[in-house]
Structure formats: structure tokens, C-alpha cells
Design a protein around this nucleic acid. Sequence first.
DNA 1: TCGATTCTGGGTACGGCGTACCCAGTGGGC
DNA 2: GCCCACTGGGTACGCCGTACCCAGAATCGA
Lengths: 268, 268
Amino acid sequence: MSSTEATSGTGKIARSLDLLWNTGTRPARGPKPGLSIDRIVTTAVELADAEGLDALSMRRLATELGTGAMSLYRYVPGKAELLDLMIDRVQGESLDAEGATGTDTADGSEAPDWRTAVDAMARGFLNHFRRHPWLLKVNQARILLGPSALRGFELALGPLKSMGFSDPEMISVIVAAQNYATGVARMEIQTAEAVRETGLSDEEFWDSQQPYLERAMASGDFPRQAALSEDAFTADIDHFEFGLHLLLDGLEKRVAERGQSGESPRRA
Amino acid sequence: MSSTEATSGTGKIARSLDLLWNTGTRPARGPKPGLSIDRIVTTAVELADAEGLDALSMRRLATELGTGAMSLYRYVPGKAELLDLMIDRVQGESLDAEGATGTDTADGSEAPDWRTAVDAMARGFLNHFRRHPWLLKVNQARILLGPSALRGFELALGPLKSMGFSDPEMISVIVAAQNYATGVARMEIQTAEAVRETGLSDEEFWDSQQPYLERAMASGDFPRQAALSEDAFTADIDHFEFGLHLLLDGLEKRVAERGQSGESPRRA
DNA sequence: TCGATTCTGGGTACGGCGTACCCAGTGGGC
DNA sequence: GCCCACTGGGTACGCCGTACCCAGAATCGA
């Protein structure tokens, strides 16, 4: 029932970055390492994907790798840094996967229009969380700017130039899409987790509250809820789509306003 | 560096709901309890607010209350259920606080127009998280429908009727605002947490990555990032406001399409 | 008034966690 | 062939949630 969260520590940032950019050099003396950061990160991601962040303990990961728990600390300063590496790893993988469907053109020709691009970006964020639900529980505020992070950001920036926004506003567009997708992902993931942890389906759960609910509705204190139609919660509206459309329509309006105010569409 | 998350368990839902609705009855025999659920929940919320969810262990909470750890289990089935109660508690408090500024009218007259109401709702969600950052780490998918939850939902529904949406769509509006605010809250809270945990300010952190970043920019692989203006990240754009306006503008368009815009825009 | 009963308080213990510390053994450089 | 930097990993510490169980308190029927 518990989960782990971490942020990279003070003096270890440089070390983590070295790991990320492969700047580290193997010492000449001593026995050759039996493991590799790559293998550790790969296994860690597989484990977290399959069984959740709770299952990813240093002991368990070591067992999975066939070594002792403390051996991992020869490769990684601590669990926090391992998580940083995992973040970069899955970021790269998602970019490869999404890149295949193409939100950007490799040949330098103009990217797709911004609306499809932002749409794809938001979907990309959501899918990324769906592929790796444990990401939601990891502090990503102190993201290490590894190759994958930069590549992703570069890809995202491409189609936004055509909006005619200032640079800070362009960042805001990305942040808005990211934040919205994150919120949706949180709701989805927590729901799935609740089902898994309690062994109780959503329906079973809400049913178990029904008696209390009926009493409350009968009290007359909640007329608006009592008046809601039966399908208010069960109708298969895709909440994500709904909100995403709102965001895109809002952007559309802002782009139109910008267009007629004669702002320079591109930075020098 | 670790934090706790929980969902209420199978057989304990009824018990939790009894606690929430005060349905439980004290037994006649035996010594009088020295604690009360109310005091436990209050202290737990204070502790979590002040020192974060990590500090909220059963042992620590018991110490704070001047008793032994196991005594708490006389009042609460487990930590998961305690968290459920804490959620309901702060929900109620936030409603009281926000209610004072008034997103709804108590006298039954028409509520303010939907745009200010949704705006206030989103701000309310964000402020709620700001007051109680630990909420972000608690699984809220299986929220117990206590009095506070129902009251909050009832309050939110009020001003939305004027939008002319179907019931499921109205839910979608609330969900969209909630999800967006949650995403923003996550970013804010994780940033603050990173500062606190590492003792490193944001600037110090990004500075420490600067050498790697410069090398990457010089490589020419990231032209769009290299071309970003200096103030791209430092400009004091409020990202939350930006995205919220997008959502509201998007809603505006949708409401107009519905053709029911003849509703009274504001109460006299 | 006095057991009997039923409850509350909380000590002890178990299996988990991250990781500090330390020693044994390996193998390339001289 | 020796030295010693290096890797592997066992042990231990202080946390966590909580199962189990017993001592003592409060109230009942007699």
C-alpha cells in the first residue's frame, strides 16, 4: 500500500548526469563489473511496469538481477538516481514509439499544423503515463536534462512556432497540455490501482456506498445531485477528449487574436 | 524520501462510512476511550500539513497524541481509512473557507454566471492542494461519499445548469477543471518538495546542469531550444492562468454552440 | 458489594524498506 | 609476482504498518 518517491540529491547530480550522458570512464584496475547501468535500468523499468513502484525495492531488483542488494550501489548512487535514469529511459522509448507515428518531420519540411501537433502532444503525455503508471508517483520537477528529455522538448517545440506566440507563451502551451494530461492520467491510474489493490470493481465500490447515498439524497440536502439523470456518471463520454477539445478551442481563439494583432510569427 | 499511498480496503468500507456519518454507537461496557476519531484526524491533518505525508506514521501520530502506536487501531481500522477520513475533513474545511468568498448563494437565488463559477472552481481545486500538498499522494479514486464530498459536489453543480449542457457533459466540465488543476498542483508541489528535500534552489539545480546543457546546445542537435530567448523560462507568466483561460474560452465556444447563451449573465 | 464481562491501552514482534559500513576476493599495472 | 584499486555482497541500523496478546479499567447482573 505504500509507494516511493524521490528526487535526486545535492552532490549526486553531476554523477547522475555523467551516467546519463555516458561521460563516466571505467577504471582500469580491478575486476570487470558483472552488471551494467543499462541492464539495471532496463530491469528496473520492466519490474516497475509489471508490478508497480511498490515492487521496485533495491532488494527485489537485485534478486531479479541475480546479485545482492548492495551491489547495485556500485552502479547507482541511490534509488533516487535510479529513478532519474528510469525516467530518461522511458522518455526515450516513448519518443521512439510516438516518433514513428510522426508528430514531426525529419526532413526539415514544415511540421503539421499546431492543432494536430498539440493534440498529439497531449495524447502522447497521456499514453506515456499509461505505459508507465509509476511515473505519476515520481517527482519529475527536477528532471535531468539527458538526451531524451532534450529530444522530446525539441520535438514538441517544432510545430508551435506557427502559432505566433512568444517563447514564454509557447512554453505555457506545452505546460498546459502536460498538466491537463497529467491530471487525467492521475485519475485513470488511481482508479486502476484501487481496483487492483482492493479487488473490488468500481461498481462494487459505489454499490457499497449506495445505502448511505440514498439516505443522503432522501434528506433533501442535495437537490441538484438528486436531480441528476441516471446516466450522468455512466454515459460513455470520454472526459479526456472533452477537456482536450476545450484546450484546443481556447488555443484557437488565442492564435486568431494574435494573428490580427500583427505579432511577429517567428523569432529572430 | 518515501511516501505513503493507500486506498480503503474491501470489508472496511462500511466501517469507514460509519465513522464518516457518525453512525457508530459507543458500547456501554468498558472504560471510556481516551481519544476520539475527531482528535486523531485533526492531529493527523496538522501533522501532514506541517511536515508532509512522510512524517505521518502511526508511531509518530501516536506520539503526537501522547499515546502508543497501537492505540490508534482502536479508533481506525488502518492507515488507509485514516487517510479517507483526513480527505473528508479537509474537504469540509476548504468548502467552509471557499464558501465564505461565495461561489454559491445561500438564499437560493441564482448563482453567479458559469464562467466565474468554473474559474472559481478550478482555483478552489488548486488552493485545496496548496493547503494540503499531501492530498496529491493519496489515492482519491475511491473517495468516500461523506457529507463534505456531497456538499462540495452540490456546490459545484449549481452554477453549471446555465450552460445548457447534458448531465454527463456537466460532469465532464467539473472533471476537466479538476484534472487541469490537479496537474498544475502536482507540478507546483513537486517543485517545492524538491527544493525542501535537496536543499537546492531551482536556480542552483538548473545551473548544475548548465555545462552539460551548453555542450548539448553547441552540438547543433537541438536548434529550436538553442534559439529560445533568454526569458523563455524565467518570464513571469502564470502558467495556471494561461491554461485556465484556454479551458474557459473553450467552454465559452461550446456554450455558444449550444445556443442557450440567453441565460442571465450575472445577478443584479 | 462483588465477580464476570467487555472494553481500552499499548508492549512486543514480524517482515518489509533504503542504505552505511566493512571485509573478502579479483585482476590489471608495475 | 606483488600491490592495491576495484567489485561483490553480508550484516546491521533505524524506519515503516500492523498482528497478536495481555494488563487493567469500567460497567453490568447478582
